[in-house]
């Protein structure tokens, strides 16, 4: 069962060749094999969301995602989030609201917020709470909600979405 694959992964518009067992968690490949350490290891149980990345636009927990599942799909990590229009606006709003405290969970928070706003440009409070399940030990939830609220209002004014 432990098949060692010469795997091609599409991460941030680049193709990477990696040689790993097919069930290696994607997070390990991103951090250990490829050295992109912006994505964090939190609980390792898909509970906290620190390891969130986008796969074909869907936010997934890379700590429980076998690398082989992501083969042939478009993976976006925090390193490239500002190359995305919505992602860039999210990062700016995060800076304006000074959201992070220790910052460990924040790359995951930004990924989740970006996925939410791409799918739902004007989220209600209900929708924000449904999409933002990521945990934050510092308790930055109010700042996160304020930042997303502002982005939603902005989008309405500018009609960007």
């Amino acid at each position: 069962m432990e098949l060692w694959n010469d795997m091609k992964l599409q991460i941030n518009q680049q193709t990477y060749d990696v040689d790993v067992a097919e069930d290696t968690p994607l997070l390990w490949v991103i951090r250990d094999n490829l050295g992109m350490t912006g994505t964090k290891y939190g609980c390792g149980l898909a509970q906290c969301g620190a390891c969130s990345v986008l796969i074909d636009g869907e936010v997934v927990r890379s700590c429980v995602m076998p690398a082989s599942y992501a083969e042939g799909k478009q993976i976006i990590t925090i390193e490239a989030i500002e190359q995305d229009d919505v992602g860039k606006r999210v990062v700016n709003a995060w800076v304006n609201h000074q959201v992070p405290q220790c910052g460990y969970c924040q790359s995951g928070q930004v990924m989740a917020a970006t996925a939410l706003l791409k799918a739902t440009p004007y989220p209600t409070h209900e929708e924000i709470s449904a999409a933002m399940g990521n945990l934050c030990r510092c308790g930055t939830y109010n700042a996160i909600e304020a930042a997303i609220d502002e982005l939603a209002k902005e989008a309405k004014v500018e009609g960007t979405a």
Binding site: A46, G49, S52, E58, V59, V60, R61, V64, L116, A119, T120, P123, T124, E126, E127, S129, A130, A131, G133
Partner: peptide
């Protein structure tokens, strides 16, 4: 399952607790 369904309590919990692994 999308955020628009978040008003249903079951769908809300599915989004936050289940979808990241089992898929939306």
């Amino acid at each position: 399952v999308s955020t628009e369904m978040a008003t249903q309590p079951g769908a809300h919990t599915y989004m936050t607790r289940c979808a990241a692994c089992h898929g939306s």
